[in-house]
Design a protein around this nucleic acid. Sequence first.
DNA 1: ACCTGAACACCGTTCAAGT
DNA 2: ACCTGAACACCGTTCAAGT
Lengths: 195, 195
Amino acid sequence: MQLRRHDVLDGAIAILDEYGLADLTMRRLASSLHVQPGALYWHFPNKQTLLGAVADRILEPIDAPVTAVSWDGQLLELAHRLRDALLSIRDGAELVSATYASRLTTTQAREKFVKAALRAGMPRPEAELAAYTLLYYVLGHTVDEQSRMQMDSYGALTEDASPLFETPDATARFDFGLQLFVGGVRNRLGDRVRA
Amino acid sequence: MQLRRHDVLDGAIAILDEYGLADLTMRRLASSLHVQPGALYWHFPNKQTLLGAVADRILEPIDAPVTAVSWDGQLLELAHRLRDALLSIRDGAELVSATYASRLTTTQAREKFVKAALRAGMPRPEAELAAYTLLYYVLGHTVDEQSRMQMDSYGALTEDASPLFETPDATARFDFGLQLFVGGVRNRLGDRVRA
DNA sequence: ACCTGAACACCGTTCAAGT
DNA sequence: ACCTGAACACCGTTCAAGT
């Protein structure tokens, strides 16, 4: 019957997925676990830390080894895996982008992106900058995409014909930006070779 | 002595710049204006709307006409202007990126980016996607940059040698991603021409 | 070691009533 | 038209005290 750190995280994920980030409060989480709010503070020093742990959970799938061999294939694979992880749970993108203010730096995910960029033939410092550029894009796009899903699901049901959705589906739009990025990297490497 | 909508915004900006977004509460704002909290709700329906108005204020400088003539010059100019606007006030990037969950759609800023992309020779749907891609990058980069400025200013004073800051300065790092993006657009246009 | 009870210092929002 | 007073329904966090 004892409350474990693991159970707290499970409870947090459950509330997040059912009711959304706004309803993920310490008090609500405590009561869903049949426990007083203060009890949570034995397992986590504060809410921010708890949310960080939830974010890590969401991003776990990214740690699987990359199967693609080409650098661009690896980047695409990683970007899609990140997006999929964020979309796998309600408000996942918002939570991760909010708690990772600068925590992306510490993440394994970041290092994986960097490695793929290194494989493309970029020097370390450039590869890191390129990795960040791609991460910003994936996060920004996915936060936007997910918030629109929420808005569409209840309320404004495509009232005024969303001005942008003649464009295929969300995945195709995501891929467009990805291709732009990969093209940018390719373009830069080309310059270097020709110089 | 009457409170005007304009004064409320001025007060909000003042609190934001002096104490940060976390301290920008309706109650704190009200008391800084020597008024009861409820008074604010005569001028704004809720906090979200007020923050939206603050965000619009911050982004005003972007509405100035673009001086560059080439499409890539225009994109660089707009991106820098956006970044400068966000950095001009404490937590500006965080506020804008938080309140513009999907409000970027409605913004003049977005349309300006689209126009520059059209000028590059992209068809409408692609130009819109490219504009979003760039916007996500600028917002993501600037939120990160500004949050790090805050962290550096008090507290963790580059204790463990921030792993990434051998790279020049923030502006140079920003430009790297910009060039990557422009290169991506150029690359894509090249394909089209050659095809 | 792990949790309760109870408090502290806050929030955003509403709304009758005042002027 | 514009604001006050006062309440409602919440927050995150702390900490003595219990088991």
